[in-house]
Simulated scan of single mutants.
Amino acid sequence: MLEVTISSMGAEIQSVKGRHTGHEYMWQADPEIWDRHAPVLFPIVGRLKNDEYTYNGKTYHLPQHGFARNEEFTVEKQSEESITFLLKDTEESRKMYPFEFELRVNYNLMNNLLEENFTVTNKTDGEMIFGIGGHPGFNVPVKNLGLEKKDFYFTTQPSVSRIQIPISKQNGLLDWDNRSLAPTDSLIALSDDLFKNDALIYQLKGHDNKISLRTEDSHFHINVWTRNAPFVGIWSQYPKTADYICIEPWWGIADRSDSNGKLEDKFGMNHLDKGEKFEAGFSITFHGQDDE
């Protein structure tokens, strides 16, 4: 059984602990390394070219991963094992993103499984264009288990190769022309150098995938089910390093280096007509070293 703490600021998971063991599964936001736990990414995922875009001939500025992670959500519904947060557009948000919307982030806890669900509703009189994603950071229990980072690894299901999209060191955008087939049909050993070129980004083509963080030396493992996400990012800070890792299901992605800056043409975005809803989400299961 788990005890989960979620903040209304950003509708962000703060803590997931084993109720009996007290083991903390989530990264605890060390400001010297990475000062987040599990931000919600909206209305973009990743970075825009020059941190700006144009829409209907007007230029807007948006920071990496958008603004939702820095906004106070309201609690719309809550029970012992479920909570739903709501964010609506404001006068300030429309200066960065000229759409009227409702964003709901729902969490459901069932034993050792935590669901994170997104519902985006277009309230604009016209089309709405957006990206959304999760960014949960997990502790790698190196010290608790008396292990080293190299004793942990990733596996993916289904066990197939996937297209990997590199990130340009020059501008932090997708180096689309140099994407390649990555051997994700075998385990990926964890190391600090794994992220020297930024996140590992894989195309999932919308199929259900499972990404697991594991070790042969303990029952500990974490599984992330991406549930139809078209992309996933695996990331940890570099060159600053610490014992954590992020597994990030995305329904959106950073700009390509050849982006023309027009939101209408942005790669990987979702389009909603007036009144329509977009639903997506992912699930995480947590398994402790004591098989709690």
Rank of each mutant, 00 (worst) to 15 (best):
M1Y: 07
L2T: 00
L2H: 02
E3S: 01
T5E: 14
I6H: 06
S7K: 11
S8M: 05
M9G: 02
G10H: 02
E12R: 06
E12W: 02
E12I: 03
V16Q: 03
K17E: 07
T21M: 03
G22E: 06
E24M: 07
W27G: 02
Q28C: 11
D30C: 05
E32H: 08
E32I: 03
V40S: 03
P43L: 06
P43N: 00
V45A: 05
G46N: 03
G46M: 05
R47D: 05
R47F: 01
N50A: 14
T54Y: 06
Y55T: 08
N56R: 14
Y60S: 10
Q64G: 02
H65F: 05
T74G: 11
T74H: 12
V75T: 12
K77W: 07
K77R: 14
S79T: 15
E80L: 09
E81H: 12
F85V: 01
L86W: 02
L87D: 01
T90I: 01
E92I: 13
M96A: 13
F99W: 06
F101Y: 15
R104E: 07
R104V: 00
N108H: 12
L109D: 06
L109C: 11
M110Y: 13
N111V: 14
N111Y: 15
N111L: 15
N117W: 03
F118A: 06
T119M: 13
T119H: 00
V120Q: 03
T121P: 00
T121V: 09
N122D: 05
N122H: 04
T124L: 07
T124H: 09
T124Y: 02
M128Q: 08
G131E: 08
H135M: 09
G137D: 02
N139C: 10
N139A: 00
D151E: 15
Q157F: 13
P158K: 12
V160L: 13
S161M: 15
S161G: 13
R162Y: 11
I163C: 12
I163V: 15
Q164C: 14
P166T: 06
I167V: 14
S168T: 10
K169M: 07
Q170K: 15
L173P: 02
L174G: 01
N178F: 09
N178R: 13
R179W: 07
R179I: 09
S180L: 13
S180G: 09
A182T: 11
T184M: 09
S186V: 14
I188R: 05
A189H: 13
L190Q: 08
S191K: 10
S191P: 03
L194M: 13
F195M: 09
F195D: 06
N197S: 15
N197A: 15
D198I: 00
D198E: 10
D198C: 04
A199L: 11
L200E: 06
I201M: 04
Q203P: 01
Q203H: 10
N209K: 05
K210P: 00
D217Q: 15
H219I: 11
H219M: 13
F220Y: 15
H221C: 09
N223H: 12
V224S: 04
A229L: 03
V232E: 02
G233W: 04
W235E: 07
S236I: 05
S236Q: 11
Y238N: 06
P239M: 09
K240N: 06
K240G: 00
P249C: 12
G252Q: 06
I253R: 02
L263W: 04
M269C: 09
K274M: 10
F278G: 00
F278A: 04
A280L: 08
T285H: 01
T285F: 04
F286C: 04
G288N: 15
G288P: 07
Q289R: 14
E292T: 12
